[in-house]
Nucleic acid binder design. Structure first.
Lengths: 200, 200
DNA sequence: GTCTATATTTTGATAGAC
DNA sequence: GTCTATCAAAATATAGAC
């Protein structure tokens, strides 16, 4: 039996995802929890704090999941493959939370905004380090590391647009699609050659 | 000298992009236009209608630009290359408008929502038709056409995350990066083989 | 076409009883 | 930990003068 705080968080995740943060009111959250809106403030000090809490937990879990999936892997191709699979799997299994983390940054206070952006930077830097290492080893083609990392992370989010948890395509199969696409792109010379030629 | 309606639209585009539709108030728009908020309603019947107008114009221009860029091209590789270039160029040149069109759908009335979603479907179907034709001709590898189209369109949006109009990387160079990446991905067998093997 | 003034609703948040 | 009651502010939109 879930605590009321957990219920509030779950309801907020659902509403923030469906209607957006600013379009969701405290009384709407309370109504779906079966309590009065004043009772929300016993569990959370403000509406913004609910959003912040969701984003904080999501980013921490996302990064922890990535680190766990990379543990023990040394081959750079294996590491990138595992990183992409981890990213895609998490985004498909936590569609609502990752959507909020990606699109509701503007609802945060400046301090909380900075904190979440920093967590996101740390996450992206793990990908960028793998790309950089692969380039240094000569396994991946030389190219702008940041541009590549954004392209990879954005591409992997595509699945969340059309993926339905009750559909017939399993998460692992989708993760493999994007993993193969990314590894091909990184090993291939065409994109990278153009990127490095024009980035200066 | 721009009309007041055009000024209102421009200011709304800027604010909707910076703060989001729900976080932007009519009085804020009016203030930046140098008029009182009541005066807004002489030009637009409601706040939602400003958003709808922006999305409508953006989607129409996006599709018209794509059709113009495809005109006269018959080779399927040329057509896909031109389509990707058109998509990327438009998104970099109209960053604010396309961001709003992609992320502020929830502010629309149900009727207007349907209309915009339909326009978006029509746009996506142009890409899907090219992919399908390329597969039939044997130029592209067989795969789920919808999954491919979402992957392509999402990937091409990545540029808008980091692109700064006053940066030193020209729009055409970026468009070429994504064009090459997509054409490689479509011609290659790996991604497509996995996609078609698991999609059933 | 723009103004002042205002109607109406809703919001996030607080006080204090139980 | 949840309630009732309420505050103060802000929102969208309208009416009518100029």
């Amino acid at each position: 039996m879930p605590s009321m705080k957990a219920t509030i968080t779950d309801v907020a995740v659902d509403l923030f995802h469906r209607k957006g943060y600013f379009a969701t009111s405290i009384s709407e959250i309370a109504h779906q929890c079966g309590i009065q809106k004043a009772s929300i403030y016993y569990h959370y000090p403000s509406k913004e704090n609910i959003l912040f809490h969701i984003q904080q937990v999501t980013m921490e879990e996302l990064t922890a999941y990535l680190r766990a999936n990379l543990e023990g892997l040394v081959d750079i191709g294996d590491r990138m493959g595992a990183a992409v699979r981890s990213h895609v799997r998490f985004h498909l299994n936590k569609q609502k939370e990752t959507f909020i983390a990606n699109s509701e940054l503007r609802g945060l206070t400046p301090e909380h905004y900075q904190e979440i952006v920093q967590k996101r930077d740390e996450y992206e830097q793990i990908f960028q380090a793998i790309i950089r290492e692969g380039i240094e080893e000569g396994v991946f083609s030389a190219a702008d590391v940041k541009i590549l990392s954004y392209a990879i992370l954005t591409l992997c989010n595509a699945g969340a647009i059309w993926f339905k948890p009750r559909g017939r395509m399993p998460v692992d199969a989708i993760a493999d699609i994007y993993k193969n696409f990314v590894l091909r792109g990184l090993r291939a010379g065409d994109l990278a050659a153009v990127a490095v030629a024009t980035a200066g």
